[in-house]
């Protein structure tokens, strides 16, 4: 279990991470999500004890990372963002060095290294120098380094960046498999990835938590409107008038004019009201044939952008308010000075 309490990280006047609070339960896979520069890596670096928070505490399985450093670090397998590897070592040498650093007992080391190499699909390249590996393999070596020593908690910083689609699927499956035995935290700015693997998502923006929830709930929460996509054959071009016939439709726009004589429309309605039934009833009466009707899903992507935009607007308006109040103060002061002179 990981507990992050009131964690803040400041660099001079710049606040990289601002008062984070969250807990990750045992065996949970949690995604840390946010645009670049949101403070994901900083948060992870603090969790692993690589940097110290300015304020707050982090405990891993009950061990405080600053006070019981050694015990806390022993619980963690960390895969840093830029996959740093020792280029002069072979894959096997690297993994066994990591095993030694993680205090794996000598008698068990060889066996453990072999199992990890097998698990991460590195057996064939185990005698190659890490510098000669392709990006995908390097990533796996880094992952193997995190896995060795069987730590309870895995912290993976953007594990799938720079991989091809096939490799992404492989790594994803590996993480899913690992999630059964370990507590996993992954950071990413790719949403589809997070929504497929993670049970819970923490969205960060500008160093603050914007939302913590399951991917499904986040999608649901940010859904403001019901969007339908309907493809019709409409010879008499009656579709634009439909809006008058079904009152619940708020907006109706043509999206595509297909070459086969069909047209696709986007219909937006109130989220509480479902216009599908009335569409099926009324359109045929108007001589319009429905070819396809589907709900346009709001993806996590939309949710994410919405949440991030919201916070940005908030801080912008705050900043504006600040400058406003400053101006007002200045004016007041000026007035006061004038008054004094008079």
């Amino acid at each position: 279990m990981i507990e992050v309490k009131n964690v803040t990280k400041k660099y001079g006047n710049f606040t990289a991470v601002d008062n984070l609070n969250f807990t990750v339960q045992e065996g949970e896979i949690v995604g840390l999500l946010g645009p670049n520069g949101a403070g994901k890596s900083t948060t992870m670096n603090m969790m692993t004890g690589y940097i110290e928070p300015t304020n707050g505490s982090i405990s891993i399985n009950g061990y405080d990372i600053l006070k019981k450093t050694k015990k806390a670090k022993k619980q963690i397998g960390y895969m840093p963002e830029n996959v740093p590897l020792y280029s002069e070592l072979t894959v096997k040498e690297f993994v066994s060095y990591m095993a030694e650093l993680k205090l794996v007992k000598r008698a068990k080391r060889k066996e453990e290294v072999q199992t990890i190499l097998k698990e991460t699909g590195l057996e064939e390249v185990q005698n190659k120098l890490t510098r000669n590996l392709s990006r995908g393999y390097k990533q796996r070596v880094s992952m193997a380094g995190a896995l060795v020593g069987n730590p309870d908690v895995l912290i993976l910083d953007e594990p799938t960046v720079g991989l091809d689609p096939k490799q992404i699927i492989e790594i994803r499956n590996l993480i899913k498999k690992l999630g059964k035995k370990h507590t996993v935290i992954i950071s990413s700015h790719i949403l589809s990835e997070i929504s497929q693997i993670c049970e819970r998502v923490i969205i960060l923006n500008q160093g603050k938590i914007v939302a913590i929830d399951t991917p499904e709930n986040l999608e649901e929460k940010t859904k403001e409107k019901n969007v339908l996509l309907v493809t019709v054959e409409d010879k008499e071009d009656k579709m634009p008038n439909i809006k008058d016939k079904i009152k619940d439709i708020q907006e109706l726009d043509m999206v595509k004019d297909n070459e086969d004589g069909t047209k696709q429309y986007k219909i937006i309605s109130d989220p509480q009201k479902d216009v599908r039934k009335s569409l099926f009833e009324i359109l045929p009466k108007e001589g319009i044939t429905i070819f396809e009707l589907k709900k346009a899903e709001i993806t996590l992507e939309d949710a994410f952008i919405k949440l991030v935009d919201k916070t940005e607007n908030k801080t912008d308006s705050k900043a504006e308010n600040k400058t406003k109040s400053k101006k007002e103060k200045k004016e007041k002061n000026k007035k006061a000075e004038k008054g004094g002179k008079e």
Binding site: Y78, P80, P84, L101, K102
Partner: peptide, 13 residues
């Protein structure tokens, strides 16, 4: 190279 991240996050002082 960033490899200091590996040793400094390992359980070694």
């Amino acid at each position: 190279n960033g490899t200091e991240q590996l040793i400094l996050t390992a359980p070694i002082s």
